[in-house]
């Protein structure tokens, strides 16, 4: 199972073993990671599961699709170069070791 590290806005680190096939958002919620709201349950319409990836992981995944890219313009916390919506990232072995920072607020 790929290991993911979440870093909260106050700097707390949580390492989880994520389930292959689920989304990063689903894994975060399942493991009680705070700060990922996901109002729309992963339908990609609310922009409340925004995270910042480490640069290496971001580049490995490639540019987000158009619809996600559009919605990232409307997230609450500042958009940064490695911003993604965690509901749109599927967990697989390529994600092992990813460091995911959670913004202070989703709205």
């Amino acid at each position: 199972m790929p290991k993911l590290t979440f870093i909260s806005s106050s700097g707390d680190r949580h390492e989880i073993a994520a389930s292959n096939g689920a989304s990063v958002m689903e894994c975060a919620i399942e493991h009680g990671i705070e700060g990922i709201v996901a109002e729309c349950g992963g339908s990609m319409s609310c922009g409340t599961c925004h995270v910042y990836l480490d640069r290496e992981t971001y580049e490995r995944l490639g540019t987000p699709p158009t619809a996600e890219n559009d919605l990232l313009d409307f997230v609450n916390a500042p958009r940064r170069p490695t911003s993604r919506l965690s509901c749109q990232i599927k967990v697989d072995e390529h994600l092992d070791g990813a460091v995911i920072s959670v913004p202070q607020s989703q709205y």
Binding site: S43, M44, S45, G47, A67, D70, L71, D73, F74
Partner: peptide
């Protein structure tokens, strides 16, 4: 969602 989204609403 192709139309009912934040970008369109804006």
């Amino acid at each position: 969602m192709t139309f009912l989204n934040m970008k369109k609403f804006q």
